[in-house]
């Protein structure tokens, strides 16, 4: 596609005729995207209204300009929700890369395939539990009053820690439990990449006298480079998604200052307090920031890793 200069000298009409079936095949997808992604964007006008739902989206609503945004700025929780979102999402992104890569390389080095397969299955099971269920389980096992984890810590003389209620530990708990839940599943992607590496490279290295660790560093990792960058760029889309399901099921008023994220904040303002204008303003703000982040990181991925999706 890049060397358009040498493209056959088909007329514009001729080319259209040739490619028409492909365009038609694309059409259903485009229509669906248009209906579910672009049309709802018109709802953004709510951010500038004192919105009364029953009057309808295009009804006779009162326009209030930037008032909802100013109100948001004054609301004490809004800034900390933004900060929490960035911190939590950032650490989740980093750890969701490092830990699955490490685990997949280590698993790959294990000789016994029975053990490898069992381990693989066991670590990716939590992925299939919803946060509703895990929330209940975690509240119990992390409880400072006789929770499993605190009892173990107690054996080492550690005072009970209120993981879900202390602002010192809440973010850590969120990140740790999320990584625990998802790392097994992510590992599979990298394991698949590793199996695709040409065995000849390892044989050649063995003949050259490389030990296992050197083979890991000089063969396995470089071969995984493309998939790692791909996963990283894909995960950038989540830069402001710190995980609504998880936070919603684990947080409480006393950890709002470290655990409240944009999505839970929007949920409370919109669905609980019924301040639809303010909630939409927050959602819009989030989208704008996300777009910015994604554009910049996509550019960086292209610039420094020479990777582009389109």
């Amino acid at each position: 596609m890049h060397n358009t200069a040498k493209a056959p000298s088909l007329s514009r009409n001729g080319r259209l005729k040739r490619e028409l079936p492909f365009h038609l095949m694309l059409l259903p997808g485009v229509i669906v995207v248009f209906i579910y992604m672009y049309i709802p964007l018109s709802g953004l006008i709510i951010a500038f209204q004192k919105f009364i739902p029953a009057k309808g989206l295009f009804g006779n609503q009162k326009w209030i300009g930037w008032d909802n945004f100013i109100y948001l700025y004054q609301l004490p929780g809004a800034i900390s929700a933004l900060r929490n979102t960035v911190i939590i999402a950032f650490f989740k992104m980093i750890l969701h890369l490092i830990i699955p890569i490490t685990v997949s390389i280590l698993l790959n080095e294990i000789r016994s395939s029975a053990f490898r397969r069992t381990a693989q299955t066991l670590i990716y099971l939590p992925h299939f539990l919803s946060w509703i269920i895990l929330g209940g389980i975690l509240i119990d096992i992390l409880s400072p009053n006789g929770g499993f984890v605190n009892r173990i810590l107690g054996l080492f003389g550690v005072q009970p820690i209120f993981f879900l209620g202390s602002n010192d530990y809440f973010r850590f708990t969120l990140i740790a439990t999320d990584v625990w839940k998802e790392f097994g599943f992510n590992t599979i992607v990298y394991l698949a990449a590793i199996t695709n590496i040409d065995p000849n490279q390892y044989e050649a290295a063995t003949i050259d006298g490389a030990n296992r660790f050197q083979k890991m560093i000089y063969i396995t990792l470089p071969n995984m480079r493309m998939i790692i960058v791909l996963m990283m760029v894909l995960s950038l889309g989540n830069v402001l998604n710190a995980g609504f399901d998880q936070v919603f099921n684990l947080y409480s008023k006393q950890v709002y200052s470290t655990g409240d994220i944009l999505d839970t904040f929007i949920y409370r303002i919109g669905l609980i307090d019924a301040q639809f204008g303010v909630a939409t303003a927050m959602g819009m703000f989030k989208s704008v920031i996300s777009t910015l982040f994604i554009s910049v990181s996509y550019y960086c991925a292209y610039r420094f890793a020479d990777y582009r999706i389109f």
Partner: peptide
């Protein structure tokens, strides 16, 4: 439009002060 957000804020701040 605003009262429930204010009472939320109140409960949050009061809880934090107690703790």
């Amino acid at each position: 439009s605003k009262m429930s957000t204010l009472t939320d804020l109140q409960d949050e701040v009061f809880t934090k002060i107690i703790l």
